[in-house]
Write a protein that binds this DNA or RNA. Structure first.
Lengths: 342, 342
DNA sequence: ATCATTTTCCAAAGCGCTTTGGATAAACTT
DNA sequence: AAGTTTATCCAAAGCGCTTTGGAAAATGAT
């Protein structure tokens, strides 16, 4: 059932039927009713491809996911973000187009999205310090919103970010206040902007108390469980081991916990742990009371809001770049306690 | 730059240019070269929407993700599947269209995908015992591949599934052979077909040794960490607690471990754990040697293969339904040992 | 040199929708 | 009653591509 068939059936022109269905005023209320009724009973739904060709709009939003063994974008955090974004898309009639591409083809993928007109806009994931994607998208004229920020980028753009610097600053201070001075950091890959900001918050807090950052206590890599485990083991082997560890995500924190418990040490007593909790639905930080003391900010909410920001931009509701900086909350769980006295 | 502009530029008709670019034989090799060259230098890429309107093909594949607080589809397992599927799509020029919908609108979402011609086919996630989506898609004539199976479904369809029954049968036998007789099961929601089959494997193995299933030892719910934790606590409180627990995924297994260690019990000695490991990239079962003894099957590989099966079907390379039953491998880790003697 | 083939190219008709620029009928003015 | 406005509706022209049915040019056969 297409528009022509439906309009033939109703004895109306395609114009009128189209207008009736799309809520234009140039059609009598009675006819509109007749049309919508017929559309429903005959189960008519306009062909998306034709509609999109005619309007120039696709009602879909792109997400480019680089896939490499180097750095893994498709992860739990990503899927929660997707869930949030997808939810906001659905509410406004959009959907999501995901392109999984080889690391090397990422730039080309954005160019292709723009030149073939597959999407009305894109969300940029995992920005790096000086991310080449942002000027590219700007130049391509493809609307975009960045989840995170790119510190050294000069082109204006909309972003939504968690205040990673302040989150880690507060987490570090929290541990310092408990008397810890040897504080390990299990960070994400530091080409990532968020990881750099986190390290900055950590460093600043330590140095404000006159503590120099010990390179043996800071590690940056893919945020997996085994990484947290391995690096914690290494740190516990030091002659002057840390009494607290900050992990960049719940997942490496699980590895930290494993390494600590394996040594027969008690969490929250011998070793304190704080992690950054993205409030993942599948891996909640405990049910009810939190397991880990954590800086928390829901990545799902971020996805939802990024989606809204992008759709607003696409629809011309906002014209200037929009920035949102969210503060993470510091929730106290069972994984932290005063520094052990030797 | 569109086709007309390009052909004007070349002094050729749109027909010839189109044919040259799409590899049709009715064009001189010299002209084809001239055309492809011009297309490259002028950075011409055919508009997807127009192409798709003309061909009737969209080169995209749908994934419908129901979102509810009841049952959470968007999770780590899902994202690894997506990564695999997306990879195979990219290789053959497809991409992925994800619709996040409210639980109640799921059926309608499939109908809409079909009637508006947004996709060439869909992957069905998380089939239930007698899943209404399969006959619906069959009737809509929309190609699909099921990740998993629907036991009570009579319409023919293509699927790829892990042999969940045999995996749990072997895991249970492995524990029985070690002398365990009180074996707990932390299962997924048992409306899900895979969970039902797992329970079946567990039950059959126990009963073959004359052991009756104890309802106090089997629990089914959303596969989260807190669920694994809570139920393990409950079971350890029993007068006759389990000496081994089988978890349906690595994530609840983490909860099981937490509950066990909290009691001061040793894993692999006081309590053995086996889990189903989907070989998630972000949450690997250890690096190198596995932490948990596990039945393992890569969900990412499954995504890859499901994508291929669906594209083969869409392109008419396969005409009959295809079935693939993968055997999970049983890898022995540090979480299992002989049943403790009382 | 003539006719039959084959090769190479083109004009034009869709694909299913939106939207512009009227036309017609109805309602309102004076 | 005639002129003016307004409310309804329509024919037709795109949107940018593919593809059908020829035509023109080049090639081969006689």
């Amino acid at each position: 059932m297409n528009l022509r068939e439906l309009s033939d059936l109703l004895g109306l022109s395609q114009t009128t039927v189209s207008r009736a269905l799309n809520g234009y005023p140039e059609v009598k209320e009675a006819t509109r009713l007749r049309v919508t009724e017929a559309a429903r009973t005959h189960n008519y739904h306009p062909n998306t491809r034709a509609k999109s060709l005619a309007t120039g709009r696709t009602m879909s939003i792109g997400h480019v996911i680089p896939l490499s063994n180097q750095h893994e974008m498709v992860n739990c955090v990503f899927s929660d973000f997707i869930a949030g974004a997808g939810e906001s898309y659905a509410r406004r009639g959009y959907d999501m187009r995901v392109s999984v591409v080889d690391d090397a083809d990422e730039i080309e993928a954005y160019e292709r999205l723009a030149s073939t007109g597959k999407v009305d806009g894109v969300i940029v994931h995992g920005p790096r310090l000086d991310d080449e994607r942002l000027p590219l998208l700007h130049q391509l004229g493809l609307p975009f919103v960045v989840h995170g920020r790119s510190s050294d980028c000069t082109t204006p753009y909309s972003w939504l970010d968690v205040n990673n610097r302040s989150a880690l600053h507060r987490a570090t201070n929290f541990l310092l206040d408990l008397g810890h001075t040897r504080i390990g950091l299990i960070n994400g890959i530091e080409e990532m902007d968020f990881a750099m900001r986190r390290r900055d918050g950590y460093t600043t807090a330590l140095e404000a108390r006159g503590i120099k950052v010990d390179p043996d206590l800071t590690h940056a890599f893919e945020m997996t469980e085994p990484f947290g485990y391995a690096k914690t083991r290494d740190m516990l082997d030091l002659s002057d081991p840390p009494t607290a560890v900050i992990a960049s995500s719940l997942i490496p924190a699980l590895g930290v916990r494993r390494a600590v418990e394996e040594r027969g040490l008690t969490i929250g007593k011998d070793v304190s742990i704080i992690c950054f909790d993205d409030a993942l639905s599948y891996l909640p930080n405990g049910a009810g009371s939190p397991i880990f003391t954590a800086t928390r900010s829901s990545v799902r909410d971020a996805g939802r809001r990024c989606g809204e920001m992008l759709m607003d931009q696409i629809e011309g509701r906002t014209t200037e770049p929009v920035h949102e900086l969210w503060e993470a909350e510091l929730v106290v769980g069972q994984s932290t306690g005063p520094a052990p006295t030797r």
